[in-house]
Each structure stands twice: as C-alpha cells, then as structure tokens.
Write a protein that binds this DNA or RNA. Sequence first.
DNA 1: ACCAGTTTGTTCATACTAGCACAAGCGCGC
DNA 2: GCGCGCTTGTGCTAGTATGAACAAACTGGT
Lengths: 207, 207
Amino acid sequence: MALDQHEVPDIVVGRLPVYLRALSAMKSGGKQYTSSHELAEWLGISSAQIRKDLSHFGEFGKQGTGYSVIGLYDELRQILHLDQDWPLIIVGAGNIGSAVASYTGFSHRGFRVVGLFDNDPTKIGAQIGGLTVQSNNEIPQFVADSHTQHAMITVPAQYAQQVADILVASGIKAILNYAPINLNVPHNVHVEYIDPVLHLQKMTYYL
Amino acid sequence: MALDQHEVPDIVVGRLPVYLRALSAMKSGGKQYTSSHELAEWLGISSAQIRKDLSHFGEFGKQGTGYSVIGLYDELRQILHLDQDWPLIIVGAGNIGSAVASYTGFSHRGFRVVGLFDNDPTKIGAQIGGLTVQSNNEIPQFVADSHTQHAMITVPAQYAQQVADILVASGIKAILNYAPINLNVPHNVHVEYIDPVLHLQKMTYYL
DNA sequence: ACCAGTTTGTTCATACTAGCACAAGCGCGC
DNA sequence: GCGCGCTTGTGCTAGTATGAACAAACTGGT
Ligand SMILES: NC(=O)c1ccc[n+]([C@@H]2O[C@H](COP(=O)([O-])OP(=O)(O)OC[C@H]3O[C@@H](n4cnc5c(N)ncnc54)[C@H](O)[C@@H]3O)[C@@H](O)[C@H]2O)c1
Ligand SMILES: NC(=O)c1ccc[n+]([C@@H]2O[C@H](COP(=O)([O-])OP(=O)(O)OC[C@H]3O[C@@H](n4cnc5c(N)ncnc54)[C@H](O)[C@@H]3O)[C@@H](O)[C@H]2O)c1
C-alpha cells in the first residue's frame, strides 16, 4: 500500500492515460470487471507493469477477482485530476487547428475547448467548431478570466515560440505543441509535442 | 567506432528524428557547424546522450570542431532510410484526415501523401489537398501498385481495427493511428499512436 | 612549433525500468 | 467448512539507460 509519498516516475504517469483509455472502452462495452492480465493483453504490455504502476497510488484490485472497471476508471480519473473539465484554448485556426477545434473527443476525457485564436485578420470572427475565432490580443485577458491552464499551439513553426511566450505570460501551465520545433519555456510550464513525421521516420528505420 | 552490428535500442532510434529535425532547422538557418552541447541545449537533453546515441552508428564529429550540420543531417537521413521519398496513404477523409492530407510538411521530411481513402459514398470523388478521395475497395490494388508501406488511420475509433486489418492484408508495414484505440497487428507491422488527449491528461497530473 | 581552448567518443558508475515469481487473499462450488 | 483456481501487490533480479568524467584529437593564434 504505497501512497504517493515518494515521487512517481514520469514514465508511469504517462501510462495512466493509456490505462484510462482502455478502461473507458471496457466501460462502454458493458464490462464490469477486468484483470491486469486482460488489460495487459489489450495494450500489449506486461501485466506486472500494470500492477506495479497502479501500486504507486494505492490498492485498487481484489485478489481472485481483479479490478472493477468503473472503480479503477474513477480512481485513475481522480489521480490524473480529470474528475473535472479543464478549459483548453487553441492558437492557430488553420487546417489542423480547425480540425482539433471541431473534435468532439475532448469532452468525455476531461477537456473542453473554450477558445480559438489567430492573428490573421481575415480569420478573426469566423465560426469554427462552435467557437468564434478571436485575435491573439485577447489571449491574456481570456486566459485570466476563464482560468485556463491548457493550450494547444497549431501555428507554423516559425511563430510557435512567440505564441508560446504569449501563453506563458498569460498564465498557461501546460502546452501541447503541434509545430515541429522545440519550445523554450520556464520550468514550471509543461510542454508536450505532437509531430506525426517523427513517428513515421522512426518506423521507417525498421523498414 | 561502433557500427550497428549490435541491436540499436528502440529509444535511441526514436530520438534520431528529433535530432534530424533540429539539424534541419539549423541548416535552414545557414549554420555550418554545431556541437553536441549546442544540440543538447536546443533540445533540452544532455550532450552525452547525443554523442552516445550517434556512436551507435559511426563517428560523425571532429574533436575541437563538432559536427558538420549538413554532414550529420545527411548521415541521419541515410540511417533512417529517408534519403528517398516514401509514399504514404491516409484512410479517413474527415476533419483530421483532410487536414493531414493538406499538410505540406511531409514533403521535405521523407514522405509524400499519394492516396486518401474513405468509405462514405458522399466523400468519394471529392478533391482534398490535391488528391481525389477513393473508396476503401481500392486500397489493396493501390497499395500494391504504388509499393506503399506507410499508412495513417484517421477514422472513428470503432472502425480503426477493421481498417488496420485491410491495410495489413494489403501489405502496409507501418501504421500511424490517430484513433484513440490500440490496434492488433502482426509482429512484422509497426504501429505508432497519436492521441492529443493522452498528452493533455499526462500534463494535468502535475497541475 | 607549440600552447590554450574546445569537442569528440568512450568508459564507468549510478540510476532507472521491466518482469519473474510467490506469498497472501478472495470467491466459488461442493 | 474446505479446497481449488485465480489474481493481486511486492521483493528481487536482470537488463537498460543516463550522465559525469577523461584521454585523444583537432583548430587557431602566437
Ligand atoms: N496539418 C497537419 O496535418 C499538421 C500535422 C502536423 C503538424 N502540423 C503543424 O501544425 C502547424 C499548423 O499547420 P496547419 O497545416 O494548420 O497550417 P495553416 O497554415 O493551415 O494554419 C496556421 C494558422 O496559424 C495562424 N497563425 C500564424 N501565425 C500566428 C500567430 N503568430 N498567432 C496566431 N495565429 C497565427 C495562421 O493565420 C493560420 O491560420 C504547423 O506548425 C504544422 O507544421 C500540421
Ligand atoms: N479531429 C481531431 O482533432 C482528432 C484529434 C485526435 C484524434 N482524432 C481521431 O481521429 C479520428 C477521426 O477524427 P475526425 O474528427 O476526423 O472524425 P470525422 O468523423 O470528421 O472523420 C472520420 C472519417 O472517417 C470515415 N470513415 C468511417 N469509417 C470508415 C471506414 N471503415 N473506412 C474508411 N473511412 C471511414 C468517415 O466517412 C469520415 O470521413 C477519430 O478516431 C478521432 O478520435 C481526431
């Protein structure tokens, strides 16, 4: 029964959302109980890893039975602070920004897109995914008023850093960057990256 | 001077595209030489790691000078088999599939989108990103004719597995899956995943 | 030619990660 | 009540990854 007194490894935290995603699918499928073995096969990893990962946070299973799907789902949501809806803004209303803004997959997983920004005057005012595109100038005020801590950057690479600077100055604490460039931010701001080409290139090594 | 007789760790292979991306930016900036220290600071990792990663493949630097940007760039492209353009198909011509199909960022990084497929009759025949949307039925023949080995899946989660099965049966060897679900494929087929929500959820743990 | 400054490739020690294996616990059927 | 089959949580071991440190090597200036 190890509680999170000790630091939980980053790599473990990164797997929790994957477990949550699988549990969500099981829940939708009407499944009531699962086991570390079943989850492991589902996800293609070892069952011991799942048990050990979860043991960082408490004891959620029952010997002989396994885990209650809904029970573990709720526990993980709490651990990840997803038992609330986090507001989220997107900067860059281009191809990918528009697609993401229209994406309905955030709502049941802890996030809600509340703002979409661009600096192109011809785009400001347009309606995309139920949102009105706003000017970059509105970002600081909007972030403050809405208490938003999450942002996605979907602008061309050469503008990504300046957008990041605006976001950091506005109080954003977590940035998901789609632009293929590494960002410089203070240590208390978290950044993650999405670049499909990186994945493709990695796989190509093995072909 | 360790050549790749021994197995190169997967995690190392995964970093090579990141190095390549940074080198590409330096190249565009007109930079001629760089060092492991400069790259490390740029990317926020340790310089020793960069040197050791590269040492798996050969000796590309010169003491006192560092690395030729173009030289290392070309070496990495060869190592990753990116000194050619790989054809790439996309299945699912919805929001995200259309955005990706229109993305111009593949062309200079080793890939070229050559086909876009959907099973919705109202979408087949449409023009998106310079491509004509084709029916799923065309996939096997198209893949065979074009010798395509890379595919991206951008269909709703519940159809992702069946699309993956079609792709595997058609001869695709590398799949980048945007749907939030784990795929079952033979061991000789590589799969990578992109799910923005996973990244957001991970960062939320620390907030 | 030599020295000072720099940077590589590699060695070595430390830290981290993954998975085996098993005691302890639970449920079910008889 | 009792035994059998199953599953958890964790100690331990083996395997991996990381980063500090350093000898060797190269450059440029004097
Ligand atoms: N489209 C894709 O599939 C895809 C995939 C991976 C990565 N990306 C990356 O995502 C980013 C956007 O790609 P895209 O295809 O949507 O490009 P895009 O040109 O369609 O959209 C970019 C948008 O950003 C806006 N913009 C530019 N500078 C800005 C600024 N300073 N502040 C606010 N808005 C600004 C532009 O007005 C435009 O609307 C790029 O960095 C690209 O490399 C795109
Ligand atoms: N839009 C985003 O920003 C975003 C982000 C992350 C992940 N995703 C994921 O990407 C996928 C697509 O999202 P979207 O927003 O583009 O959805 P969408 O509904 O706009 O597009 C899905 C497309 O797939 C097609 N399709 C359905 N079944 C098919 C099949 N069997 N064969 C071929 N085509 C088929 C549909 O006709 C439609 O055109 C989803 O799994 C979603 O979860 C989307």
